[in-house]
Design a protein around this nucleic acid. Structure first.
Lengths: 253, 253
DNA sequence: CGATAACTTGATGCCCCTCAACATCTGTGG
DNA sequence: CCACAGATGTTGAGGGGCATCAAGTTATCG
């Protein structure tokens, strides 16, 4: 099984993902059951209500977590960037649909075999707990955004978040403080994530451009000359990772 | 250390909490380090940014998780009912303030000792992961509410959620299908949880009373004659635990 | 029983949704 | 290369839901 070991050896998220908890030897047990795969943009990875047969490491690209209401309305409840973990580590059924927002490389682990490895490797389970706790933190931050921010601040916060996560996962560019990245989302998708309509999202993009907080050479290309300015517009405390501060007032327009 | 064993032996959440993963013998190791304590209503349990010195089982009462913005505005990012787990199981600092909404019985575990027990008892860590995953599910459901529901549906969903969680934790009354419980929150707190103002919350209570979906003998006492009706008003699918369905249209008023 | 907090209800204004028209981008086939 | 169609994005006009401001009522507690 030489090829398999090599596979993990060249994995770009070898040390950042949950696999970072394992030594090379320990990892080989996981690599035996892993199923790397490429999923094309807009293809589903699993669906809400499906049996949770696999869980995944996201190696590259972006995955959106979607809940669909009966009337067809969609809401995006989360975004997964590398090197994050995707799916239900334990148990039963998925509670949302996971869909590739871009072309995505994922590494799948069949449930039964994965749980067996977990049993034998408490360090791995610990890592999954860490990732889940962080995900929960992000989700709670997001409820704050949805509960308390204006549309302008929401779009600003969104761009700030995407900029940071894009950079951390190795894409996008940073040149003398200027951050540049490509949005892998339509206006409608952004709206579904922010609890707004696509028209409102578009208008707030225009406002951010008008105030020179961002520039957009093309409708999906974003340039942020000063991240701190963007953070201020979005009412994000520059210090933390989405902690709030400064800027009093609810709807500063 | 007979007294300590007895203490856990009479614990009302012995089998529902994370401790349910352990045999009596295994539990004794935890009981040695546990610090049961009563916290009065409106008292903080820990604060945003504090070092996470302890985590807790919530034995009775309700705990609210609060983030405070710089301008003093508050947002409630979660509610913890028995037999849930409270605090950061791993690592560093709290990311929100935990405050007793009612008088609360909690069982504290000092971090260092707790992690040692975790190390020795993978089953316990597994249980914590389960609880965290469930918490994450609830949080994602909540983002859907904040992103997509009208004020009327939000208040309805809130009452539905409180009714169920109150019942499950052993309080409240259920008599021939009629559910009855006491709200441990002010209108302002409910507003902070739902991303609304207290006036709007009050108005939606009035509307729910006017349509006879609920009755309120006193401003904190709620009677729900038919939970299914409430669920429909709140646009909650009766089948699941907060899954959505039926009722098309975004703002049915 | 007086003081304060909690709650209710009304009037007004604004943010964002809705509906609509138009512009721009993308890809396909003649 | 251009024509064309469909998807995506932008901008405007109008209306409604919720915030804001304000006043009055009820509950809570020393």
């Amino acid at each position: 099984m030489r090829a398999i070991c090599t596979r993990c050896g060249t994995c770009p998220i070898r040390y950042q993902s949950i696999c970072g908890a394992l030594t090379d030897d320990e990892l080989s047990r996981l690599s035996v059951i892993s199923r790397p795969r490429v999923v094309g943009a807009h293809q589903p990875i699993f669906r809400d209500g499906d049996e949770a047969e696999q869980c995944f490491n996201v190696i590259s690209g972006v995955v959106k977590l979607v809940k669909t209401l009966a009337d067809g309305e969609q809401h995006i409840v989360g975004l997964i960037y590398p090197p994050d973990f995707l799916g239900r580590p334990l148990g039963d059924r998925h509670t949302y649909t996971a869909e590739a927002a871009t072309d995505v490389e994922i590494c799948g682990f069949p449930r039964g075999a994965f749980e067996a490895v977990l049993e034998a490797q408490p360090k791995l389970e610990r890592k999954i707990l860490e990732f889940t706790v962080r995900e929960l933190d992000l989700c709670r931050e997001w409820t704050l955004l949805l509960g308390r921010k204006s549309s302008y601040q929401r779009v600003g916060s969104f761009l700030y978040m995407v900029a940071r996560r894009t950079a951390r996962s190795g894409y996008g560019y940073r040149h003398e403080g200027v951050v540049r990245f490509r949005l892998p989302f339509t206006r409608a998708e952004i709206a579904d994530y922010l609890g707004l309509t696509l028209e409102t999202v578009s208008r707030q993009f225009s406002r951010l451009k008008a105030t020179h907080i961002i520039a957009m050479p093309a409708s999906r290309d974003v340039v942020v000359p000063d991240m701190a300015l963007l953070a201020r517009a979005a009412r994000i405390d520059a210090g933390g990772d989405g902690r709030y501060g400064a800027e009093p007032g609810r709807r500063p327009l």
